[in-house]
Every structure is written in structure tokens, then in C-alpha cells.
Simulated scan of single mutants.
Amino acid sequence: MAKIHAYLNFNGNCEQAFTFYEKVFNKQNIGTHRFGDMPADPNFQLKEEDKQKVAHTAIMINESTMLMGSDCIEGFGQKIINGTSTYIMLDTETAQEAKNLYAALSENALIIEMPLGEQFWAELYASFQDQFGICWMIHFEGNKKMQ
């Protein structure tokens, strides 16, 4: 079966976001390529200020889950539009893990839709938009398992 990984796009602050995510998940970055590392292409002129932007970066959250990201370059027709069409859901194994992830990821959150708390479907659940505009859900099912 295929694995699902999250690929996040940013408007020039991918490196800052991934430094934050490395701290949250206590994982090292596995590599970063910048737009300036790409071979020159006469069809796509790269502005000098875009050369240091991140073309691709990643961290392994666990052995089967990777979080990847890139800055968007408007000159390439890319534009960030933050919204709630996609969330990254972290399904935790313990209540403490849910509490720790919520405390770390919600630091300076733009929007807290639902603070971490008990719901009829989960012992702990939260939904929010982090300081970089990425939407997250944190879930610990605990004793609320569906029958």
C-alpha cells in the first residue's frame, strides 16, 4: 500500500517553518535544496531574491511519515492561498503525546478552532491553524473507540 506524506507550501518562510517543525517533532531535517541550486533554465528566469528560497526540504516524523515543504515562487505561477481545505491530522498514541504536540504546534497559532479537549469521538481533540498558516488536527481516541 502507498504511504501518504504531507507536502506543505510556503510564501518565503519554509525554512523558518521547518526549523519550527524540527523542534516540535524533535527530528533533524534530512536535506534542503534551494531554488538557486537548480540548473539555469532560460524559460524560467529566477529572481536573485528567490535563489535562497527552499525548493524542497523534509523531515521524517517517524519511519513511515514524512513532512516535506517548499516555498512558492510567484514568477513560476505559484501563489499561496491559506485555507481550511486540507488539515494534517496527528493521531497520537497517548494523551500526553497529544498534549505535548498541541502545546508545541499551537505556539503563536493564527486561529484556534477547537482547543485541545474532550469530544464525543475522542478523549482529546484540537484543530487550529499554526503560525505559518498550516491547518492541524490533533487526535487521541483513547476510551472513545468506535464500536
Rank of each mutant, 00 (worst) to 15 (best):
1 M>H: 10
2 A>G: 00
3 K>R: 08
4 I>S: 06
4 I>G: 01
7 Y>E: 07
7 Y>G: 00
8 L>D: 02
9 N>H: 02
12 G>V: 04
15 E>M: 07
16 Q>A: 10
16 Q>D: 12
17 A>M: 05
18 F>L: 02
19 T>Q: 14
19 T>M: 05
20 F>P: 07
21 Y>W: 09
24 V>F: 10
25 F>R: 08
26 N>D: 13
28 Q>D: 14
31 G>K: 10
31 G>V: 12
32 T>K: 06
33 H>T: 15
35 F>K: 09
46 L>I: 14
46 L>A: 11
48 E>L: 09
50 D>W: 01
52 Q>T: 14
52 Q>W: 01
54 V>T: 15
55 A>D: 01
55 A>G: 12
57 T>V: 06
58 A>F: 04
61 I>M: 04
62 N>V: 10
63 E>W: 06
64 S>P: 07
67 L>Y: 03
69 G>A: 00
70 S>I: 08
70 S>E: 08
73 I>V: 15
74 E>H: 11
75 G>E: 13
76 F>M: 15
80 I>N: 03
80 I>A: 01
85 S>G: 15
87 Y>G: 01
87 Y>T: 15
93 E>K: 13
96 Q>G: 08
96 Q>M: 02
97 E>F: 04
98 A>Q: 13
98 A>G: 09
100 N>A: 12
102 Y>H: 12
106 S>H: 06
106 S>T: 03
107 E>V: 15
110 L>C: 07
111 I>C: 04
112 I>C: 02
113 E>N: 10
113 E>L: 01
114 M>N: 08
118 E>T: 15
120 F>P: 00
123 E>D: 15
127 S>F: 06
129 Q>V: 15
131 Q>F: 00
131 Q>K: 14
132 F>V: 03
134 I>P: 06
135 C>F: 03
136 W>P: 07
137 M>R: 05
137 M>L: 11
139 H>W: 03
142 G>F: 03
147 Q>Y: 05
